[in-house]
Structure formats: C-alpha cells, structure tokens
C-alpha cells in the first residue's frame, strides 16, 4: 500500500491537474493584476514594462482629479459599520431568541435563511420594485399612512440612495449570521446554562455574561465575513443603482475604471487594493481575537470595554 500511495506517477495524476488549473486561472491572473497595477495601461498604451510607472496608479486613484475611489472606500467602510453595528447585533438578537427554545424554532430558522440562497439579481430587482417611486410597495404603504416619500425615488434621492442600497444587502444576510450564531449557541453545553440559571442568571445577564462570551469564536467568524463581504460588495449595488455617484463602492468603481473608462492600470490598482483590504482585515481580526497563552485576547488586553467570560467557567469552555 505504501508503495502505491507514494508512487510519484500516481501523485502527479491525482494532484497535478488541479494545481496547474488553479495556478493558471487564479494565481497567474492575480500576479498579472499586481503587475498591471504598476503600469500606465490605457487604450493608447500596451501592458509592457515600457509604461512602468511604479505606484503612481495607487496615488492617482486616491488623489487624482475627479476620482471617486476615496468616496467608494468611504461607502464600503460605512457599509461595514452598518453591518457590524446593526446587522450582526440584530442577527445575534434573533439567534438568542431562537436559542431560548421558542415554539417552532426550526421553522423560523429555516425561513430566515431563505433570502440567503436567492441570487442578488432576484433580490436586487425585487427591491428595485419595492423602492419604485410610483408603484413600489414602500411608497404605496407610506402614502397610505400619509408619510412623505423621498423626492425622485429612494434610490435616486440624495438623502436616501446610499442607505436604500445598503438595506437589501443587510436584510439578505441576517439569516446567514443568525444561523452561524444560533448553531454556536446551541452547542453550548446545557450544564453551563443550567448552572447559570441556578445562580440566578436569566435574560440579558445570561446573554451578556454567559452566552455571548462563549460563542466568541463564532462571532469572530461572523465579523470577518461581514467585513470582507463589505469590501467585496458588488452585485447588489450594480443592480440597484449601477454604482452611480453617491452609491459607488470599490468594486463598482473598479469595474467602471476598467471596462468603461478603459484605464486598466488604475483599475488593476483598485483591484489590488480590494485584495489587500480583505487580507489586512483578516490578519487584523486574527490578531485581535487570538487567544494568548494566558487565555486573554489582545482586545481584552487593549481595553476593558468588554467583559470576558466569568472565571468560574471551566477553561476551554468557549470552544464548542
């Protein structure tokens, strides 16, 4: 058996096609993107070293005349904030309610997940109809209760367009985060919950001092999903507003720069910026939440804002 399983020819047949395929269509393009981002490549020039400009594209995309990229990054940070401070707490709240063992808990849990599986095209187009200025559900409802509707429609009005773009995305993924948190809550040992109940913990006390500290690893996962998701945000914005001024996000701006303005160099720089942003936040989050030798995370060392799990709990209990 050992001879068969360490036969070089077999290993090559099994592994090499995938490695080559992956390298050629994922890694090579990324490396090329990095290279292109250092070139002054437009319709008039070619992607050769002759047009090497160093980091000029990276500087241009932030400081160049009329560039909308800084605003797009600002929007994505705003979305990230909304996701972290509105969507995740709301999902956590739903998860805590469901985990209490309400009636029909499985039914709710299955239902809340439905928006997650729908394509952005369906969700986006549906919300466009909901937002429609003349016949949309939202405005019909508001008119019925005599509330003024925004001028020009939700997705065009200066004051509402950005949030109107964010709401459908936030709405769609509540079920996803809820399911992750709910699963983690359910895997907390019933003994711990019972012990806490005996000690008189219930409702918010139980949630803040027992349950939430215990599902911290999962909260980290949710946090990184929502942060990385916010930098990659594209589909829904494209469908809802086409990334028009006032609603642009990095990916839609990159798309325009690349395929509308044909500034391939700057577009590639934007693409690399998105990749770097995702990597940076993954690394940061890992550092922030890493369990240190003394069992305390960096975040706990940095600030006493959040309380850690009560000392009474057995070590390692927060690893379901």
């Amino acid at each position: 058996m050992k001879r068969i399983l360490s036969n070089k020819w077999h290993i090559m047949v099994f592994v090499l096609p995938t490695v080559l395929f992956f390298s050629f269509f994922v890694i090579v393009p990324i490396v090329l993107s990095a290279y292109y981002s250092l070139l002054n490549w437009t319709t008039k020039t070619k992607p050769t070293l002759e047009y090497f400009v160093g980091f000029r594209n990276y500087i241009e995309m932030f400081t160049g005349k009329g560039t909308s990229f800084p605003r797009a990054v600002g929007h994505s940070l705003l979305y990230a904030g909304a996701s972290v401070f509105l969507q995740l707490p709301f999902s956590l709240f739903l998860a805590l309610l469901l985990a209490k063992g309400v009636k029909a808990e499985g039914f709710y849990q299955n239902l809340y997940f439905i928006p997650v599986i729908l394509s952005s095209v369906v969700v986006g187009q549906l919300w466009r109809k909901i937002y429609n200025n003349d016949y949309g559900l939202l405005n019909l409802f508001l008119r019925a209760i005599n509330v003024e509707t925004p001028k020009g429609g939700w997705l065009a009005n200066k004051g509402t367009r950005l949030w109107a773009t964010f709401v459908p995305v936030l709405w769609q993924y509540v079920g996803y985060h809820m399911l992750l948190m709910y699963g983690a809550l359910k895997s907390i040992s019933p003994d711990i919950i019972e012990a806490a109940t005996v000690d008189g913990a219930s409702g918010p006390t139980m949630a803040f001092h027992i349950q939430i500290p215990l599902i911290k690893p999962m909260l980290k996962v949710c946090l990184s999903f929502s942060l990385i998701g916010s930098f990659k945000l594209y589909d829904m914005v494209k469908i809802l507003t086409d990334g028009n001024i006032g609603t642009e996000v990095p990916a839609t701006t990159m798309y325009r720069e690349m395929f509308k303005s044909h500034n391939f160099g700057t577009g590639s720089a934007m693409a690399m910026f998105i990749v770097a942003e995702c990597l940076l936040f993954t690394v940061l989050l890992n550092a922030l939440f890493r369990e240190r030798a003394d069992g305390r995370t960096l975040r706990e060392r940095l600030s006493g804002l959040f309380r850690s799990a009560p000392d009474a709990l057995p070590k390692g209990a927060d690893r379901p």
Binding site: F25, V28, P29, L32, S33, Y36, K232, A271, V275, L279
Partner: peptide, 18 residues
C-alpha cells in the same frame, strides 16, 4: 487554500486576456 482569500474581482482583466 490561498484561493479562499482571493476575491474574483481582482482577477477579471488578466483572466479576460487569458
């Protein structure tokens, strides 16, 4: 598994060429 961290946005233009 490195591929898990790479958003496909970043590969569009070179991939188009390939």
């Amino acid at each position: 598994l490195l591929g898990l961290m790479i958003p496909m946005h970043a590969a569009l233009k070179p991939l188009l060429g390939i």
